[in-house]
Amino acid sequence: MNISPSEAEEALDAIQVMMQKTRRAISSSGAYKFLIVWGVIWMVGFLGSQFLPSEIASFVWIWLDILGGLLSAIIGIRMNRGVRTSSPTTSGRRIAIFWLLLFFYCAAAIGVAWPVDGKQLAMFIILFITVGWIAMGLLLSFASVWWGLALLGLSLVSYFLLPDYFYFIMAFVGGGGMIILGLYVRNRW
């Protein structure tokens, strides 16, 4: 079988494109759901922190955190159903366990540091979520690591330098940004 160099180049390009598309499809197939879930939770939680008394807002956050942990676990289990390993759902199950453990670590850290005010509570949750996000990025799609780091940076800057606008920034830029990014990832695939 003989082909010209230009045909060889075309074939190699087709291979490259297909491999990249496959990698992207596998990695983005569940990542956007995490983003949308946590984006909505952030938006609701931070708006609660802005408008509700701090004690109520703290409880709202705890329940939102539980909800987010459970939804993340379900998403992890259901991820990549189109692709399975010889030991089915092992990776999904591990992702689910990771998020549940992260949730318990977060709750334990808050318990140890208690009493904390609303902003400190929110910052604890943000720190743990962004750790989870970056870990998922390293595991599934490296590009999303940068978004996680950007969100972490924004949170820290808002917390230390713009405390009066912290909740608003987190609700609309943080939460809204995650929802938009999640929709972008979903539509790109």
Binding site: A14, I15, M18, M19, K21, T22, R23, I26, G82, V83, R84, T85, S86, S87
Partner: peptide, 12 residues
Amino acid sequence: AALVTLAPNEEV
């Protein structure tokens, strides 16, 4: 190209 991108123990 798509199939070799998967890990050896994975199927699509």
